[in-house]
Design a protein around this nucleic acid. Sequence first.
DNA 1: TTCGTCCATTTGTCGGACAATTGGACTTTA
DNA 2: TAAAGTCCAATTGTCCGACAAATGGACGAA
Lengths: 256, 256
Amino acid sequence: MKQNIFEKIEILPAYRQVADAIEAQIMKGEIKPEEPIGTEADLVAQFGVNRSTVREGIRLLEQSGMLRRGEKRRLYVSLPGYDKLATRISRSLVLHKVTFRELVETLEILEPNTIAMAAKNITNEQLDRMAKNIEQTEELLEDRDMLSKLDMEYHSLIAEAADNKVFLLAREPAGLLIYPATQYIFEAVPEAPSRLLDAHKKMFEALKTKDVEQARTWMDKHVRDFVKGLLRTGANLDGPIAKPHLDHLLSLDTYL
Amino acid sequence: MKQNIFEKIEILPAYRQVADAIEAQIMKGEIKPEEPIGTEADLVAQFGVNRSTVREGIRLLEQSGMLRRGEKRRLYVSLPGYDKLATRISRSLVLHKVTFRELVETLEILEPNTIAMAAKNITNEQLDRMAKNIEQTEELLEDRDMLSKLDMEYHSLIAEAADNKVFLLAREPAGLLIYPATQYIFEAVPEAPSRLLDAHKKMFEALKTKDVEQARTWMDKHVRDFVKGLLRTGANLDGPIAKPHLDHLLSLDTYL
DNA sequence: TTCGTCCATTTGTCGGACAATTGGACTTTA
DNA sequence: TAAAGTCCAATTGTCCGACAAATGGACGAA
């Protein structure tokens, strides 16, 4: 093995070629989202392979979210949803044994910047939804499960308001992984819910008045507060995320 | 349709159940990466479904990167690779018609923070690799294709040195999507290569001396410089990324 | 040791088959 | 006339059986 002048020769199974071919058409824009692709029989005819082979190829694209079953169970090109992608990324991170430290560190940077962007771009409709969220949070201050959900939603709303798809997708997995921890914080830190509500209100005000710096400052505090709470739960920042924190990730299976 | 008290009843096809079952075992840690899962025949026996069904289920997990074919083509649990994930995310973003503005805006935030983290954690081995990269950049200053590759690699090295998996994964897709644009910049802006090299060197020095602020400052400049160059190519920041910028994304098909 | 041959296993692909689901057309009924 | 029931064709999800090709291991020859 003196020299290696030869490239690795690619031998792709037929089902991969099917998937790649379809994906290429989609990426090139030849077929657009929401457009129907033929029936399985059609694809069989076009590719000249067996239906089983076509089906296996379809599964690949189905999983990556580029194909879905629409009305009458026909195949449609579709845009991979952010939630699905985020879930998938989150799971990968878990398998890679991501630590709380990494998550926290990331959120300390991303969240303040997210809200800064949101402060510039947020719409009234989005502000209304945030107001509604805060309202519910106020009512359900005792219900930890709901509080966690509402908190997650609150931060997702901000991310959405930032109006930047790249940033949204960069932030979402971290949010997905860490916010369930709020439940544990609520248990360990009695005053956490009211502090959370307070911060949410302050950030809302800042967003409403488009005060970028105020928004950023409060989010900063909010995140640091969160970290303090996390430490009070006895979480080990440098170990992989504890199992109980991950249940929700598994329960998402159904609708993915 | 007055009330909706009934939940949607989930009816999952068998191949989905197969995939979900295996994925659940993986996520729960019952099966760990690099461990073999049975042969298709084994799975057929365990699940009590036909081999075709098992295969379709396997395809889903193969695509999400949790299963791969290892030695003797047997099935092994595997960790979803970052490059694969990043490619998938990038493609999704393209389909969602991500704009240059969103990418740039994201990088303006992420890159300086990435290098700040890197300045704290970078190892000598990583510094060596960066030095090598700079060396090559210096040699190949005329070769635009290689320059782009090297630039991308340079920034990936920094991201790796930041030693934060969440951040790495947050940054990678944006990098993947935007750096090909460097090629066009090199064409439109003759002095770009030398400016790039200069910035890379400055950042390297900052990293070597673990000077967080210097590193951040230079990356700031570097990114802004990049944006200026991008504008000189006549790119429309608010339109979807132009097709020629995307070729490399498609060519990645083979090894995914 | 290196090379070739043979063998068992497993995957990739194929062909055919059928029940269940779906939407649409058509008919009946209130 | 509109709602409800019936029938039909197309398509998917699943199963069965089959076979060539690839793979790695064992075994023997050079």
